[in-house]
Write a protein that binds this DNA or RNA. Structure first.
Lengths: 245, 245
DNA sequence: CGGGCTAGCTGCGAG
DNA sequence: CTCGCAGTTAGCCCG
């Protein structure tokens, strides 16, 4: 155990990536507080001060601390305790037995390149608003209001302001509330008629009812991830976008 | 490499916890799609079919798959590729070099016990609504509406319906929109006056303005995590809750 | 910095 | 199953 502690200390000092597998208890106090009794877990400490405790099930770590954590260690003759402190939050892991320990110098300069996120869909739509409605023309992207930011700010053939909220997946009540906030805000500022259009691949029944009751509109937008960008002709029944891969 | 693949296959078959550290590329396709060039990372496969890829920085995994992933492996003479499939989503990790490999049988039956989450705060408030306002009495918890569920449904001294939304941290526009939805819904159903009170330790300026413009109220609720439950006297200027530890 | 928002959000709980 | 929502949400980007 003592040599393990030395290895951990060295790894912390040299900002290495540390992986510890072992039996431990965990305690956390900060925005909330938690206790976890003894069990075998995987602990990861990253050079940037990320602190993760993984149980052998579930996707998220059972406990964690974000980038910037400052570590101290202690050995009482029986247990090695690693304590991480970060902006008033404390996470402590006490190992009674260590199964595996790695102090590594991992090299990784790559950044994940993701496609198919909302901004891409929003970009593709802004590129050709006729998918939503014929005669629609863009005024600005990301109209910033005190009450948030509209995805697309446009104008219809009649000169009405049209605020468009884009969702990449099924829209719920929250999406409608968001759009409603923007529409009401702009209605108050402009005297003219202000329309709100919610674009999403789907919408829940409650959200649809709420939307229509508030005088706003839903436009189904289907899209695919994995092929070239292609905006379907707006005369087609189904608005469809194919996105970059 | 071949023996590593055999170890991995055995671990997958026997539903062990597998930790692989090595140089790899990652590709994902599903709800979105992503590519990650070569670098040294930590991969964790859990017995429940959780699949995690951690770069040596940041809190969340760069790629992941949830519980229930089905794995296949391949070795082309150079690289070991592990592919996880889960509900139409595919995550593939190709190792060109393995730095460390562990196939473990981790025993952990413990569940984290967390205190200080919203439901606790909501419970404590429902216990003594006088913290919010004198004469307030509970009607029901978690009033379920087509447009969501109110945290606390109460009645004030004058017999008005009072809907209370509780937030454990600073409330923003979204919290106000939520409460507004509930209040408008209930106003439509009941003829009587319906009040909305947002309880939170803090509120943003925009949210406060929005809230008051909509005829709703803000009540500052301070609470602590870590001591015994104690509800301060409502005559005190500051409503304060101390929560279980 | 705070404020508002997306996320391959995840996970939970209610209907 | 779907829907709505909390989360120690985290991370991003804008003012």
């Amino acid at each position: 155990m003592l040599s393990s502690k030395r290895d951990i200390d060295r790894g912390l000092e040299q900002k290495k990536t540390i992986i510890i597998v072992g039996e431990c208890t965990v305690s956390y106090a900060g925005r909330a507080a938690s206790k976890l009794g003894p069990g075998e877990r995987i602990v990861i400490i990253k050079p940037d001060g990320t602190f993760l405790v993984h149980q052998p099930f579930k996707t998220p770590p059972v406990n964690y601390q974000k980038t910037g954590t400052v570590f101290t260690t202690d050995y009482d003759g029986e247990k090695i305790t690693i304590t991480g402190r970060n902006k008033g939050e404390v996470l402590s892991v006490s190992f009674s037995r260590i199964i595996a320990l790695h102090v590594l110098d991992l090299r990784d300069r790559q950044r994940s390149c993701v496609v198919g996120v909302e901004s891409h869909l929003s970009d593709a739509l802004a590129q050709d608003l006729s998918v939503i409605e014929e005669g629609l023309r863009p005024v600005k992207r990301e109209g910033i209001l005190p009450k948030g930011m509209v995805d697309i700010w446009a104008e219809d053939a009649q000169g009405n302001t049209v605020l468009i909220e884009v969702k990449r997946r099924k829209a719920g009540l929250n999406a409608v509330s968001q759009l409603k906030r923007y529409v009401e805000e702009v209605r108050k500022r402009k005297g003219s008629r202000v329309r709100g259009i919610l674009c999403a691949p789907d919408i829940t029944a409650h959200a649809k009812r709420f939307l229509e009751k508030e005088g706003m509109e839903y436009k189904k937008i289907e899209y695919e991830v994995g092929s070239t960008t292609k905006v379907a002709n707006s005369r087609q029944k189904q608005a469809k976008l194919e996105k970059y891969f």
